[in-house]
């Protein structure tokens, strides 16, 4: 049952798995592309080119912490994860919850008095901070909302995009 759950989680988190790259294959197959934002309503789903990122970054642990690739070097993490070997769950969704602030999540967090990682980012926050953070640092990746995921019709209505260019009230005062 639990293995089925794991499979399900893996299947959900890794959308479209195409060809596995032969390099660095130890446990799970490495997807070349992943469909992200699969249930997005305001922004469309899009394909993340995993293979291209592997080629340019080379270091898995830059994005995946200690779950795969080399061991961690962050002195704060090293204190506990010095010898943490690659884990069975590597995908972002395996650890970062899609609903970090739901009543259930908050209650579980409060009940677990010994938990160390109390400030664990939710899935959406983790992905955006990881992507945008790195793209800003490296300076050659997309950082705008629609550079990665184009808005849906619903999204355009949500952001009232038809009013783009309309003068804000304070501008008229001047």
């Amino acid at each position: 049952m639990s293995s089925f759950k794991h499979l399900l989680v893996a299947a959900l988190s890794i959308g479209a798995i195409s060809v596995s790259s032969p390099a660095a294959l130890q446990c799970a197959p490495v997807p070349d592309s992943i469909t992200l934002n699969q249930n997005g309503k305001l922004f469309s789903p899009f394909t993340f080119n995993h293979a291209k990122h592997i080629q340019s970054i080379k270091e898995c642990a830059d994005c995946h912490h200690h779950t795969t690739g080399t061991l961690v070097t962050d002195p704060n993490c090293v204190r506990c994860h010095q010898n943490s070997s690659p884990t069975a769950v590597v995908s972002c969704k395996g650890c970062h919850l899609a609903t970090p602030f739901s009543p259930e999540t908050l209650a579980a967090k409060r009940a677990d008095k010994q938990r160390f990682h109390l400030d664990k980012m939710g899935l959406k926050g983790a992905m955006h901070q990881s992507c945008i953070g790195c793209h800003n640092k490296v300076g050659n990746g997309p950082t705008g909302c629609q550079d990665c995921h184009p808005r849906t019709k619903e999204g355009s209505a949500f952001y009232s995009s038809n009013r783009k260019g309309a003068k804000p009230a304070h501008a008229e005062e001047e």
Binding site: F158, Y159, S160, R163, K164, A166, K167, P168, A171
Partner: peptide
């Protein structure tokens, strides 16, 4: 990104904004 402004607008059923929620011009003031 001002998504919070857009979400608030829809959740609280507030009137349409003067300019779209992705217009960076509002930051001038």
């Amino acid at each position: 990104c001002r998504s919070c402004e857009a979400a608030c607008n829809k959740e609280q059923k507030l009137p349409e904004p003067d300019t779209s929620f992705d217009d960076p011009a509002v930051f001038e003031h």
